[in-house]
Design a protein around this nucleic acid. Sequence first.
DNA 1: AGAGCCATAAACAACT
DNA 2: TAGTTGTTTATGGCTC
Length: 410
Amino acid sequence: MGPIIGMSPDKKTEIPGMQEERTGLRGVCGVGTLPEAECASSPLATSVDRTGGTEDEELTNLNWLHENLLQNFTLGGPEAQPSGSPLFDIEGDYGSSQGPSSSSSSSSHSRGRERDSLKSKPPFSFSLLIYMAIEQSPSKSLPVKEIYGWILEHFPYFSNAPTGWKNSVRHNLSLNKCFRKVERSLGKANGKGSLWCVDPEYRPNLIQALKKQHFPAAHAFCTPPASPPSASSPPRHLFLQGCSFKESDIDAATAMMLLNSAPGHHVDPCNSDSPLDLSRPDSVLVSSDPKQDHNYSSVALQRCSSRSSSSSLSSLDEGTFDRRQSHRAGSEGFHSDEDSDLWDERGVLQTSRRPPAIKWPAGKRARREVKPELDEELKEAAGSLLHLAGIRSCLEGSKRTVKSTKLNRK
DNA sequence: AGAGCCATAAACAACT
DNA sequence: TAGTTGTTTATGGCTC
């Protein structure tokens, strides 16, 4: 999502009066009307406090990832998500369960990040922003206005952005297959327009896109994998789906998440209570066939992963949900047989938090199976990261055990 | 160079 | 009538 990650904030900065309006924006942050998403400190929209103006505009750097996503997204299990948020602890309690980078943030640091959040465009596409907003709602459906509110609340950048972003939101809602329109219930006829929800069929792909976007580490290689670090050697880089990271940029949380990506976590996404549990990375659709991945598009991920070597995971490619290319006959045509149990006779969305059991096509289901060689790659990658993070993985322990066994035999 | 994707802008209709 | 919502089309930038 290059246009998003590096989405030319220069365009916005050209707007007259933009800089002046940025002051006092904290007050604008509360525009959102979503009761469950009371913005405490706009956690998602924060950015690293840097003095360099040009770096402020650079959203592709790893600092953003660390200072925002790793702090604000819940990577732990369900016990780490007391708020029930499927995606992240939006209530601001992001200092308890996240990686080491979150524990050392000072108040001035936070202020700086808040300041930068006002001018840094969030590295999420509008589709992901909408998705996050909808998923944050208790009923998993929101009217457009509340989607606006959520975005404004958590991404104050848009407070000063020209109103075109709202048009983009609506454009995304209409055009993106991920989202479906839901008529408001009859007894709740207040308000204009329809509710929008996430199509359960495409939710795994949104999760995948979101996961990859905020943490493109489903596949990692350490170069060279087996060479020990030496003082004379240049700094090693990790290639996480094509993104080259210095090893110093990789922290334990990153490694732990990779380890979570290792096998043994097979979860059926259809039966997942939390539709966006990042602690269950395998709950996303994994495809080796780009043609079959006709779902959420994430150019940023492609841009990140495309430069990598041909890995088995780098082929996670998605097509757009361009409704122009699909058979589209209004919202009713958007209903699929698989999720028909989500709707009652009147077409009212059933707000059960438990997603319906989607009957996945054979191809889709098969794509979720993790190949053994993939497991080994993930294991190796996780081990490498854990090693770099100063954590002794169980793999190393196993290696030591094998070594000692061999020595004993000798 | 072309394709694909995304953001943005704009026009328009329907609705409140 | 004005504002909002939803749809559609067009365009430009970016990357592969």
